[in-house]
Every structure is written in C-alpha cells, then in structure tokens.
Amino acid sequence: MTESRLHAMPRLIGWRVLKMALMVLAIVVVNFLLIHAAPGDPASAIAGQSGQADAEFMRQLREQFGLDKPLPVQLWIYIERVLTFDLGVSHRLQRPVLTVILERLPATLLLTGSAFLIALSSGIALGVRAARKPGGIADTVIMGVSLFFYATPLFLVGIVLVLVFGVWLNWLPTFGMETVDVPLHGLARVLDVAWHAVLPVVTLAVFYSAVYVRLTRASMLEVSSYPFVKTARAKGATEHRVTWVHVLRNALLPVITLAGIQAGHLIGGSVLVETVFAWPGIGSLAFEALIARDYDLLLGIFLCTSVVVLVFNLLTDLLYLVFDPRVQAL
C-alpha cells in the first residue's frame, strides 16, 4: 500500500460514512412507508390476538401509539426520534425497542458469527484442497458434497439433522439455546450452550461453506494459470508457498466480496434457522413483530440490520484495498 493511498483513506472513509448516513435515512423512510402500506395496524393486531374489540378501545390504542396523526407527521416524529438514537417502545412487549434488540442480539451473533467463521474457514480450506488436483478423488468428493449442500434448501438440512442427531441417535438437543430444567453456571453453562449450538450452527454453515468451496476452487484454478505463478515456481518457491501466498491471496477477492455480503446478513439472515431450532435471536423477534404490526420494533430491527449491511460493505471495500493494490477508490 503506497503512502499517498494511506493518506487518502480517512477522507475516503469520511465521505463513505456521510453517504451511508444518507442511505440509512432513505432506508428509514422507505421502511416506514412500506410498513404503513400493509393492511392493519397495531390496534387491529391487538384486537385480533385477544379476539375482542370495541370502537373506544381501538381509538384509545391508536391515540396511545400516535397512529391518529397524519402519516407525514408520524414519519417526521419517527425520524426526529431516530436522530436522537431513540428507537421508541415496542407496544406489544411494552419495553424499549433498543433494550429488546440488545437482549436478543448476543444469541443471533453467536449463531451467525460462529456459522460465518466456520463456513469461511472450512470453505476456503476445502476449496484450496480441491483445486490442488482438479479431477482427483479429493476434488470429486469435496465438489460432490458441496454441490449437495448448495442445492438443498436450508430448512431441509435442519430438519434432517434434527431427525438424525436429535431423534434417532439422540446425541444432540434439538431446540433451545441451553438446558433450563436444571440451571447451569460458569464453564458448564458455556459447554451447554455450545452443545445446543451444534445443530443450528452446522445447518447455517453448510450452505455458505458450499458456496465458498466452489468459489475458492474456481478462483484458485483461474489464478493458477496466470504467468506470475509460473514465475514464482521458476524462482524456486515451494508448492506450499505458491498455493497459500501467491495464488490464494489473488484468488480471495471474489471470496471477500461474498463474505462481505454474508456478513451483512449476520443479524437478519437466520430467521429460518432460529425458528426451526427455537434459537432466541433477532430473526424470530422480527417475525413476531411483523405479525403483530409492532411498528417501532420492526423499524428498529430494520434499522439495525441495514446499518450492519452498510458497515460490512465499507469493511469489504477496505479489505479490497489491503488485498489488491490496484483498487484505488472506495
């Protein structure tokens, strides 16, 4: 990385952050309008849940939630609040949105973070291995298995894993994040959570791992054919060094792009797995909030997920700078 590019970085990042802020604002407005375009509102959802309603009760609820004001006014009030980092109160749970989200965030990050790391590391390692000898036994097996997981829907993988390891073999717990019948503490609790995490993490990881395997392998094969690889070999670099330093570093760019996209979905992308395994994360929270028309909570979750997506886009672009000196602008 040259000196001039390093000096330019703070300015580039500053510019990007400003653009991101505007984008977040646009996302807030669009989300707000989309949610209000759906039929029904929190008051009708509450009525639906309790199976009873009267006009006065509905009017009181709407007044309490500020839904009696014109839509542009509601939007303005919401933006004003978001600008002061006040995400409002979930009418359904009667608790601050930020508290609710922060309460659920660790579970989701534990699930998606571990799945992400496992998928990325195993995907790259297996992809490199497969590319070493295209058409060989290892390549055939790895590509066959990855194609299988790539083509199988996520929920099916989850259900099959539950059936095999949870029901038939009875090795692993099939739902929840920890044992609650007997409360555990300290290391025992950490191990218990890890034990419960095996099935959901594996389910989430296999799909992305399969994608990384295929991408890494294709990219490795392409880069291997470049003349500079020949040069490296000619100057006497070991095969190990050629693979892991010369080829892999250049082959990683598309993998980083994809990893950036996946990382952006760390918060919102696991609704299905959280549902199947009763994992108490953000995904299931978002789904309930949608059904209950819990406007503030839903908008809060959308806001958090979109900020995470944008932050990871920025990080991905910064990583390009590190890996590929030819990339100049952000």
Binding site: V162, G166, V167, T174, F175, E274, V276, A278
Partner: peptide, 20 residues
Amino acid sequence: IVYRIVPDSQSRAVALQSGQ
C-alpha cells in the same frame, strides 16, 4: 413449571416425542 418457546411446529413435535 418451565415453558419452552419453540416457534416451529415440527420442532415442538420432536420435543414431545423425545420426552424433552
């Protein structure tokens, strides 16, 4: 009495079937 929250109906069926 412990109430477990399990959103997926098939996961609940497994929990009942396996005695959890």
